[in-house]
Design a protein around this nucleic acid. Structure first.
Lengths: 103, 103
DNA sequence: GGATGTTGACATGTGTCACGTGACACAATA
DNA sequence: TATTGTGTCACGTGACACATGTCAACATCC
């Protein structure tokens, strides 16, 4: 049984950068520089990504999925979960929005 | 049977702004200004959204889902489909990325 | 018919962010 | 010693979400 999705998760979801750092880099025996070269992006980009200071862009998701043999959605799902969690922390005045019924 | 996801869709997916314009605004009898007020954002924001000149941000997805009684994921899924399609059109040098095997 | 208000569009400005390049210091290793 | 990897900084550029202000067109009401 899963947790009903009406219950908000308290902990911030796993950032895709953490997945890279903890799982993908070790599993594929890759370094930050190696991954950057393999993807055709700058070292800086990967460095900031694995340190969770940057989000996975759609382009980056395509590149990662191509290299690791998964889907862009895999990466963007993880990213979206984080984005949504962050937005929920910072959003204001949502409570003023009254749910609507069909007219 | 669904289409294998290895086959690329040719047409650009439906932009969330089109959904708003074609479905939600008429169904809920809302104007651009009315929606803006209901969501607590500027008229300009909604105007650009329904004209598909702006993307649905995570914050906006939360607001929309709260007003219309659906989920943020509903809006962000639609947005992501568009983003991914666009990225696939503009991305370069992906073919240079060689798929990896486990080390 | 004129005042008022609502709507949609445009311009402008601001802040954020992904990305690149180049440089530096420090480690570990060949 | 020379090389390679890492983390970090300083730039700059282009996109883009958002607010504010303005304006013309249109409706509505007195």
């Amino acid at each position: 049984m899963s947790i009903p999705n009406t219950i908000k998760r308290q902990a911030r979801p796993t950032h895709p950068g953490e997945m890279l750092r903890e799982d993908f880099l070790p599993d594929f025996k890759l370094t930050v520089s190696g991954l950057a070269m393999a993807l055709g992006v700058s070292r800086q980009t990967i460095n900031e990504l694995v340190h969770e200071r940057r989000a996975v862009s759609p382009e980056m998701a395509i590149r990662l999925s191509r290299l690791f043999g998964n889907t862009p959605e895999f990466w963007l799902n993880a990213q979206r979960a984080v984005d949504l969690w962050d937005a929920n922390q910072t959003i204001t005045n949502v409570e003023k929005i009254t749910p609507l019924k069909f007219a």
